[in-house]
Simulated scan of single mutants.
Amino acid sequence: MGEIRELVLKYALINAYTHRGKANPKAVIGKVLGENPELRKRAKEIIPPLVNEVVNEVNSLSLEEQEAKLREIYPEFFEEKNEKKEEKKGLPPPLPKAERGKVVTRFAPNPPDGAFHLGNARAAILSHEYARMYDGKFILRFDDTDPKVKRPEPIFYEWIKEDLEWLGFRIDEIHIASDRLEIYYDYAEKLIKMGKAYVCTCEPEKFRELRDKGGIACPPQGGAS
């Protein structure tokens, strides 16, 4: 049990150190089970209560105390971190004209797609890294407004959140697009009234033709202003 606690403490300190002093229990569990898959057999019995206990202990420390403790039990972390900084020169590249504290990024997965694949993870990581780089905000937006194609199930939303937490993300806001349709309609009406948009009544084939020619607006007989 002592060895397991040391493993949990290591990852709780790492997670806290990299996320402004607050460790996330689910992220810590993912790292612990990743390093020691054998613990999966006893995960429900031992891991959650132990992780919660250790995370509370770590989160009660100051940032300086967390760093000192991490250097004491796992100094290799700081060596590896320096090596990774050298490997990641210029990645991700700075954002032109970005201001610290004002950068907002979002990741918009389609819930019916279920668990992450590498492409999802790459897009999410880039968005999250830019938000953290500029002390900005990272938004998880569930893009679930087309149920005719794929009907979303509640479990899909949980899978995506769990995957992001396992990757060590800090999600600042969560939005579900299907819950915000009234907001979208309101802004659509405002744009139409301002003359910035119109309702297109073109046939699909005509619409695609005009779009492919460079986004030409529908002729008067094909649209209403």
Rank of each mutant, 00 (worst) to 15 (best):
L13W: 14
P37H: 02
R141N: 07
D135F: 03
L91W: 14
Y134D: 06
E153P: 00
L9K: 15
L39S: 05
K206I: 08
G215D: 12
E162S: 13
P94C: 00
E64I: 11
R100L: 07
F116Y: 14
K69M: 12
D186W: 15
H175A: 09
Q221K: 11
P49Q: 05
E53Y: 02
P220H: 09
A121M: 05
C200V: 12
P112M: 07
G21Y: 01
S225I: 14
A16M: 12
E162W: 11
K213Y: 03
V58Y: 07
A188I: 14
P152N: 08
P25M: 09
L13I: 12
L9N: 09
R208I: 08
L63M: 13
P152S: 07
V8M: 11
P154Y: 09
A98P: 06
A224I: 15
V51G: 00
I155L: 02
L118M: 05
P154S: 05
P37L: 03
V54N: 05
E72A: 10
Y187D: 11
A16T: 06
A121L: 13
G90K: 02
E3P: 01
A68Q: 04
Y157F: 15
N56Y: 04
V103C: 03
R180V: 00
E79N: 08
A108M: 09
G136A: 08
P48E: 02
I192F: 03
A131F: 03
R5S: 09
A123S: 14
G30W: 15
P49T: 09
L164F: 05
P111D: 04
L164K: 08
G21W: 00
E203R: 06
S127Q: 13
E182M: 11
Y17N: 03
E173D: 10
E3G: 10
A23Y: 09
F77V: 08
Y17G: 01
K88D: 14
I47W: 05
G90N: 03
R20L: 13
D163G: 04
Y157V: 03
K148F: 06
P147D: 08
E165R: 07
G34W: 08
Y185K: 15
F78K: 10
I139F: 10
K137E: 13
L210Y: 12
E189G: 02
L191N: 04
A108P: 14
R71Y: 07
K213Q: 10
K102A: 04
L39M: 13
G30V: 11
E38P: 04
R40N: 13
K161I: 03
L61D: 01
G214F: 09
K193Y: 01
K196F: 15
V199G: 04
P111A: 01
P92E: 11
I46F: 09
L50A: 12
T18M: 13
L126S: 01
V103M: 06
K137R: 15
R20I: 06
L167C: 08
T145M: 02
